[in-house]
Amino acid sequence: MFEAKLNEASLLKKIVEAIRELVTDANLDCSEAGITMQAMDSSHVSLCALNLRSDGFDHYRCDRNLSLGLNLANLSKILKCAGNNDVCTLRTEDDADTLTVTFESPKQERISEFELKLIALDAEHLGIPDTNYKAQVRMPSAEFQRIIRDLSVIGDTCSIAVGKDGVRFGVEGDLGSGSISVKQNTAAEKEEERVEVHMEEPVELTFALRYLNFFAKATPLGPIVALSMSPDVPVVVEFPIETVGYLRFYLAPKIDE
């Protein structure tokens, strides 16, 4: 059997809310090591990769490897029935065609149980090559979200340029053009307010803001976002999930044809 217990249902809610507009259906791959998920959007431009380590759960048991095919809109409907502080348990027997989702309120006075139908999905796994990224930026996720939202009002496409002093987000649209630069700031008192740049060489790539906006929906997962870029390869936008794992998004760049 498979059983995974999370202290806070809100974590699962945040993960599903972060990806459900990008991905309709996805396999949760469960093993002794934990839960992973890899799914592309329907245009094959972006990919999200989730990794939740088994030791990040309150209780975790997985007797044999399982792929649980889920419709994320339906999972989201069930998660709406959970209180943020509820304990959430995912459970399935081997060969079952449903996933049992239970929510227990902190004082155990309210227990909800749902059976979500599983679906058969073709696993379309992509091999992601190990990449030594030439430029990496860690910055506050709320700052990233705001920049992407603000630039989306001006144009459809955003350039991201990492230099030694910081990162510059540029946009062009019918009304004109603009940019927002965020300077490296490693002296901020709180770690989550720091902007850190690690760079072997300057990198500039161009991306569709539509997808970056989808990624920014993961902001509630944590205070930090990490961008990793190399010339002419997809950017990685990673939201670390404290003590459990991460949610990563890969986005193919726009390129001159």
Partner: peptide, 14 residues
């Protein structure tokens, strides 16, 4: 204007 590339250009099907 630059065009949108596909992930399949960079990542291979496992």
């Amino acid at each position: 204007m630059p065009g949108q590339s596909s992930l399949f250009t960079f990542f291979t099907k496992a």
